[in-house]
């Protein structure tokens, strides 16, 4: 096998076949994918089917706490999980740049395999394309995911009522800061690790246990908790009020934000969920989340109030202000 990806690895001939059979299939060794048919045959699935898709272009592809492979699996699994669906199968589309070290590809594949194992999902089909040097950025991954909602839970923003609580499963901004630090080569006393993790095991067992109490769930990825809550509030036509003192942010993440002028509310997470929960069940649900390794720092960050829609925040200074969508990138300060 070659030590670098060549254009001919994507041309459909013998080299493509070799790459798939000798490298990719070695990592994704399961009965659905192994026959290498044109489609993965999943068998019969009982329950409501959920279907999602995503593309992964993170740079650098390897960062503290994770990498593009783990991200691809977890991102897809989490989109299904917050819709109440257990991931059954995902696809793996690889877009590789000519010259990509084979070792890099294999590390990403190994990470996908490990994350899929953890999330109990089958990588059921795939595709590999190679683009000329300079026309890509090393490795891009696209996925689609199929999940099944066994007990019939569905997102129900219209069920959100004043008095409901807003629950966040852990600290904000870890993923984006980890990537930023890796990209800029910033040296920090305390390293920040990406939170990238599959959330099915954390969220799905709670749905039957707290039947009728969990109204709506989202994973606050790009745009962070701030944007996600705005989208949730418009979907629910509800007024959310956050409590700044209760927003969980790691000290090292806050430090980076202070220096570079970012607001953790708008930084991406890859292993967190926001839940809108009936007020009478919120404390118990937070306690249940905290029993799981990915929910140890779960907390109530705000509540749903009467009157209007949108997101507001009670500040540390004791005032109240709007939490809106950001415009453009969050740029560092200039004076």
């Amino acid at each position: 096998m070659h030590d670098k990806i060549l254009l001919s690895h994507g041309e459909g001939g013998k080299r493509t076949r070799d790459l798939i059979a000798r490298v990719i299939a070695r990592y994704f060794d399961n009965p659905v994918l192994s026959p290498l048919f044109d489609a993965g045959l999943l068998g019969r699935i009982g329950g409501e089917i959920a279907f999602t898709t995503d593309g992964y272009v993170v740079t650098p592809p390897f960062f503290p706490g994770g990498d593009i492979g783990r991200l691809a699996v977890c991102g897809t699994v989490n989109d299904l999980a917050v819709c109440g669906a257990k991931a059954v199968a995902i696809s793996c589309g690889l877009i590789l740049e000519e010259g990509l070290p084979m070792d890099t590809l294999e590390r990403a594949l190994a990470a996908m395999r490990d994350a899929a194992k953890e999330a109990e999902v089958t990588i059921a089909c795939g595709d590999t394309k190679v683009v000329e040097r300079g026309k890509g950025d090393g490795i891009f991954i696209t996925t689609a995911g199929v999940g099944v909602s066994a007990d019939g839970w569905r997102p129900a923003p219209s069920e959100i009522r004043p008095g409901d609580r807003i629950v966040l499963t852990g600290s904000m901004g870890d993923h984006q800061v980890a990537v930023l630090v890796a990209r800029r080569n910033l040296a920090l006393d305390a390293p920040v690790l990406s939170d990238v993790a599959p959330l099915g095991g954390l969220l799905l067992p709670l749905l039957p246990r707290f039947s009728g109490k969990v109204r709506f769930m989202r994973d606050p990825t790009r745009g962070g908790v701030g944007v996600t809550l705005n989208e949730m509030a418009s979907a629910a036509n509800a007024r959310f009020v956050l409590d700044e003192a209760r927003l969980p942010v790691r000290e090292s993440v806050r430090g980076v934000c202070e220096i570079l002028g970012f607001d953790p509310l708008y930084l991406a997470n890859e292993g967190k969920a926001v839940l809108i929960v009936a007020g009478d069940a919120a404390e118990a649900l937070v306690a249940a989340l905290r029993e799981h390794p990915y929910g140890r720092e779960a907390t109530i960050i705000g509540e749903v109030r009467e009157g209007g829609s949108g997101v507001r925040m009670r500040t540390l200074a004791g005032g109240v202000r709007a939490v809106d969508y950001p415009v453009g990138d969050q740029l560092p300060r200039i004076c």
Partner: peptide, 19 residues
């Protein structure tokens, strides 16, 4: 950085703000 962040918290204390 940890120590400095605690230091910043002193300038965001809700009770002092209220007073």
């Amino acid at each position: 950085m940890n120590r400095s962040m605690k230091y910043i918290d002193d300038f965001r204390d809700p009770a002092t703000a209220k007073a």
